[in-house]
Structures are given as structure tokens and as C-alpha cells.
Design a protein around this nucleic acid. Sequence first.
DNA 1: CATGAATGAGTCTTCATTCAT
DNA 2: GATGAATGAAGACTCATTCAT
Lengths: 211, 211, 211, 211
Amino acid sequence: MEPASEPTGKPRRRRKEARPHEIIVAGLAEFAERGFAATRLEDVAARAGIVKGTIYRYFDSKEMLFEAALSSGIGSAFEALPEIVADYEGSTLDLLRLLVGRLYETLFTPEVELLARIIISEGQRFPAVAELYYRLLVGKGRDVLRRIMERGLARGELLPSPLSATPEALIGPVVMAIVWNTIFGRLDPIEPKRFLDAHLDLLEKALGHNG
Amino acid sequence: MEPASEPTGKPRRRRKEARPHEIIVAGLAEFAERGFAATRLEDVAARAGIVKGTIYRYFDSKEMLFEAALSSGIGSAFEALPEIVADYEGSTLDLLRLLVGRLYETLFTPEVELLARIIISEGQRFPAVAELYYRLLVGKGRDVLRRIMERGLARGELLPSPLSATPEALIGPVVMAIVWNTIFGRLDPIEPKRFLDAHLDLLEKALGHNG
Amino acid sequence: MEPASEPTGKPRRRRKEARPHEIIVAGLAEFAERGFAATRLEDVAARAGIVKGTIYRYFDSKEMLFEAALSSGIGSAFEALPEIVADYEGSTLDLLRLLVGRLYETLFTPEVELLARIIISEGQRFPAVAELYYRLLVGKGRDVLRRIMERGLARGELLPSPLSATPEALIGPVVMAIVWNTIFGRLDPIEPKRFLDAHLDLLEKALGHNG
Amino acid sequence: MEPASEPTGKPRRRRKEARPHEIIVAGLAEFAERGFAATRLEDVAARAGIVKGTIYRYFDSKEMLFEAALSSGIGSAFEALPEIVADYEGSTLDLLRLLVGRLYETLFTPEVELLARIIISEGQRFPAVAELYYRLLVGKGRDVLRRIMERGLARGELLPSPLSATPEALIGPVVMAIVWNTIFGRLDPIEPKRFLDAHLDLLEKALGHNG
DNA sequence: CATGAATGAGTCTTCATTCAT
DNA sequence: GATGAATGAAGACTCATTCAT
């Protein structure tokens, strides 16, 4: 049982270190829902259980909070990939299957969808954010893809072709699924599993010929 | 008496018919650049060569203008497709090539890119707009794709598979290209031609097996 | 039957002389309903069956229209009274009865109520209007009242008293009735007839003692 | 480095408790002077020594401020009356004298005149306000009057008559005086004392017959 | 004369940001 | 550190007024 220490009913104050993170979480939710411009700091504060002014103790401006929030979310989702690719023994197709499977797992997660929503809708307006994501995530993914293709070519599994030169096309469907759900999700949502199956089917058909 | 100094303002133009369209064009540009919330009607007006107040003679509110602008842009890009599919004599692969080629032609156009930019970034926040585009465009495209697959199955060119059940995956790459350019275009733009080649290559590899 | 001359359906254009008056009538209605500041010239025009701009052909400004409208309404309701008083043969009480009866008849008329509504609500803000009404109407009424009292004193029907020195109090009830209906009419309207009876009763009790 | 010039604005006061009331007082003055529609929140703010935006911390809109201001002013001017009537031992005439005297005392007060001015001029446009005043003030007054008449009838001091059935007429003169001063006060003000004397004289003449 | 498009000066309202407590 | 009152700079929207047709 709790000691009857604080009769006012306020929830025990959280350890201060958590504050900025709570604000960021609240901000992420609001930014995803309304977009940067339409998000009110007051609502962010309310969601974080504090008052507007307090946000400024941790972030210099709305924009700073926005960027901090978006940066915070960048997981190391793909950190492990380069190594995996390097050490992988199986076929190119299997490697791609692995990668694509990971993508669906990673991206169709509530938190990541939130981030995706924001980047999709605000990315163009915030070059700094776009660059960050490009550097830390998307670009990495691209590199991995390229390395997979090079490996495939080197191993004789693939022949040089427009596709092997532009392998990004191979993950088009995931991107489409995310964006689709962001925009038309309310009307006609895409079921990730089903889409993943079709995607894998496509990969197999396209690359698995000589299996 | 006053000297015949410059009469206060510019001459009042009178374009009756053209005005609403001019405003819409200006609005589209501003909305694409800044997003709905951050767009200032004053800027739209300036771009249209008129004054803020004048917008209200034609549109009841900023939101009305936004929706009018987005509606106005919905071309009949895909109108002809159903017929084409119905009358087509060639292979499924060729039909898909045709469709995908059209998509690249249509979507990578300055005006359409503008619209795409807006829908991508604001679609989630304006259900009415999303629905409009779903009904008049995206849904149509989806239907055409499905019909193509059915036709392919009927003709014995395809076998039932996850991909034939979810053929949207086939156009994932175009969607990815558009979105990519919207967000990362400044950092590392996708060259549509190159991407189209990869996309066609992918289709051919995946569906042109028995060549 | 009408000749099929004007197929467009516009009502025959009124003789131009009527225009200003139609505008004034429309203005009166709007001003009474919304007050000067909240009245939109566009609504006045619509009610008069013309367009906003046309008002300016007849009136220099909204305020001019307002004053013109209020001036136009000043009937000669009391024009005849001085003479009547001068020629009257009966008792002071009867004379007052006559006057008060007239007041109720005159004031509880749709058009006059309209005017009253406007004067009550805007009189303080438009000194010119207040002065006009004071000069042409209210002041006249006051004079008549005074003359009636003088006559009564002279005829020995009244003795000098606070009331004979301030006879305006005698018509307080009518004023109250009008104002009451203007403000509380929707909640609990005063029925003029009933109020008139009470008013006459009051006069009789107060002045008809020794009859 | 900048010289220690005057720090941009005035020091931010912090009156927490007092603020809303200060705003209301300022609002009352402006509304009385210009009417609701023509009052600028900026002027209200200036008069209250704050900035426009601050008003919105306490009131949701101009209209809310208006209603709050009018509500705030409703004193309990007549609270005590019912009891007084119940306990009174003297004659009906004396009771009426007492009531009317009170009315003059209460109504001809700077603050009340302000309120009266507003209610007279805006009451018709704000049903909510009219109802409030009807419920809390005017209706109460009416009830008191009726009770006085009933009491008079019961005590045999009065006989049933149109006036006893509609005793509101008895206070017509006060209402007239207020309204008159509101509208014609600048041209020809009524002196309350003088009017009160006439009013009392009228009451006495009308009801004090049987000595 | 009438029209209605266009203007431009407001006015309300919102909100990021600051600051005294 | 946190609070919340206060600020001030916008920005949407309105409307009296003007003017080309």
C-alpha cells in the first residue's frame, strides 16, 4: 500500500529524466495526427500531463521538439543487416526474402506507423528530417539492397539488368503498402500479411527461376 | 489640389470566368509547397495576382478552396483504361507494360506531381479528399489491375497465386518512386526513366517466364 | 394576362422613383432586427431586390441610409395635437385620455414598432437621430403635455404639484410598454389593450377625483 | 552590445484573481458606449490595461465576455423586497412609495445606468441576456408588485380594477426616466429627483384618496 | 442607371513563446 | 524545475466602399 503522503491526488512525479521522453511520445502522437503546423503545443503538453511552458524547459521551440521526436524514433532497425548480408550463405532470393520479411515486421508496428505517417506527410517540408532519415535509414536500406545485388551478380545468381542496377524497385510494394494505409487506410486498408505474401511471390517469380 | 499622383492601386482586372481557376492554380502551388495548415491565403492571393478578400467571392473558406483545388485536378487519366483492357489482344505482360508505362507518363508531370505531393501529405487529414481520389482514381486503377489478372488467368497465362490475388503489389514501384521523390527528391532524386526500366524488367522477369 | 414580353422572369422593373423608398423600407427592417453595426448592406440590398452597389446610387454611405431611413419614418403623428388641445372643450382628464389613447394607437403599429426598436437600441449612439426625434416628435409631445397641464391649472382643474410640473411622468406607462415589448416581448409580451386600460385607470384615479 | 534600453514592453502584471473582473468592467464600459457589434476587443483590452489576446484566457469569445459581463452585474437589488413586503405593516401606498424610492436609488447609479444602457440597446438581440434579466430581476419586480396589489386588495385598501390587475403600469415612469436619459439624456436630461417627486405625487393622487 | 467583381481596412481568434512567481 | 498568466505576431474572414463594364 501507498503511504498517505500526497493527499492532493497528483500522481507521483516521475523521475525527471523521463520528462523529455514523455513529451516526445506525446508530440509524436499529435504530430502524426494533425501534422506539424496544426499541432498545438498545448495539446502535446496536455497529453504529456504537463503544461505548455514546461515543454520549453526541454526543447527550444516547436520545431526542435519535432525534430527531436523524429530523431528519437530512428531505431537501429537495419543496423544488423549489413553483417547479416556479409555472413549470409544462402541464395539471393532467400536473402531478399529475409530483408523484405523484416521490413514488413518492422514497419507495420504502431510506433513505426506513427513515424511513417509523419515522414510521409511532413518529409518534404523538413529537409533536415528527410536527410536524417535518408542518412540513417533509407540510405542504409538502399545500400544493403545494392550489396545484395552485387553479391548475387558475383555469385552468378543474377545477370546485369535494369533491375539489378536499380534494385530499389524490389521493395516498392512495401512502400506502397505503408503509404496506401496512411492515406486510404480508413476506406480500404491493406492487410500487411496478404501483401507480404504477394510481395514474396513477386520476388520468387522474378528471381527464383533457376532454383 | 493634389498632384495627379499614382492612383492608389493597380487597375482592377475583371476576369470573371477565369478567376476561380486562377485561384485554384495558385492554391495548388501553395498547398503543395507548404501544406494546408501552413498555407496563407494571402500568399495564394498574391500568386493569383489578387487580394485576399477576393478569394472569398469564389470560395467560402480556406478548406473549401483546398477541396475545390484538389477536385479540379482529378483528370480522367484512367478513363480510357477499362476499354483498352477489354479490347486488348496481346499478352498479359504486354498489357501490364502498357499500364505501367502510362502510369509513369501520367504521374511524372509537373501538375500531377503537385497533386501527388498534396495528397501524400494531407490525404490522411482530409477524408473527403482521400475518398474522392479513391473513388475516382485509385480505386479505378485497382479495378483495372484486377481485371487484367482475371483476364490473364482466364487466358491461361497466369496461375492463381498470392500475387494474382493481390496484384496491387505489381505497381508498388511506381508508388514508391513518386513518394520517394516527394520526400527525398532533393537529396537523391529517382530518375523516372531508369525506374521505369527496372520496373518493366521486374514485370518481365516475374510474368514473362515461359518466353 | 401578362404579355409574354420578358421571358427571363425578372419582375417588371419598378419605376425608379420608388427605389430609394424600397431601400429604406428594407433598411428599416434590417436595422431593427440586427442593429446598425451588425446590419449588412448586402442583406438590405437583397431584401430590396437589388444588389449592394446600387444602394450607393441613392445613399452615400451606410450611415446616410440609416439616417435617411429613420428620418423618413417620422410621421406627423402629433402634428394635429396642438390644435386639438387648443380647441378642446372637455376636461383635462378627457384630454389626457385622448392623448394617451392616440399614443397607444400610434405606437403599437408594426412600422412604428420597428422604428421604436431602432431608436431605443441605437438612439444613444446616433446623436443626430436622437436630436431629430427629439425635435420632431418627443419634444412636441412633451410640449403638448405641458400645455395640457397649464390649461388644467388655468381652468382650476389642477393644483400646482410635482406632477403638474413634470407631467411627462403621466405617459411613463406607454413608454414602458413599448420598451418592455422590445426587450422582453418574446418572453412575456405586454398586451397593449390591457396596458392601455390600466393606464387610463391610473389617469382617472389620479386626476378624476372630484368628478 | 545593445544599450540597456527600455525592455520592450510593460512589465507583465500578474493579477490572477482580479483579471477577469477587470476585463468585465472594461467590457461593460465599452459595450455600453458602442454596443456589442461595434465594440472592439482591442479597446476593451486597452481599457483593462492588457493585450487583446489575454482576454481569451478568460473568455472564449466576444459574446461570452458580453454575457459574462451582463451576468456579473445582476445584483440582488430586489432580493430583500419580498420579505419587506411580507413583513410590512403600513399602507399599500407607503409600500409602493418605498418600492419606487428604491427603484430610483438603485437604477440611477453609474454602474446600473451602464447596464441599463446595454440591456436597452442589445436586449432584443440577445435572448439569453434578456431572459436572464427577466428571470433574476424584472420578473421578480413584477411579482413583488403583484403581491403588493394582492395585499392591498386583501386589506380592503384597493378595489379590483384594471390598474390592480396590471400594476406594472405603476412603475412606468421610472422605466421611462431611464430610457429617456439613455436616449435623450444629452439633449434634455431628466433629473431623477424631480421625476421621483412627480412619480410619488402620481402614486399618492392615484391611491391615497381615502386619507 | 445597375451590376457585381474587386479592394482593403479592419476585427476576431489562435498560438508559439516569454517571464514572474 | 514547473507553472500558467501574459504577450504579440499572425492569419482567417468580413464587409463597406469603389469602379469597370
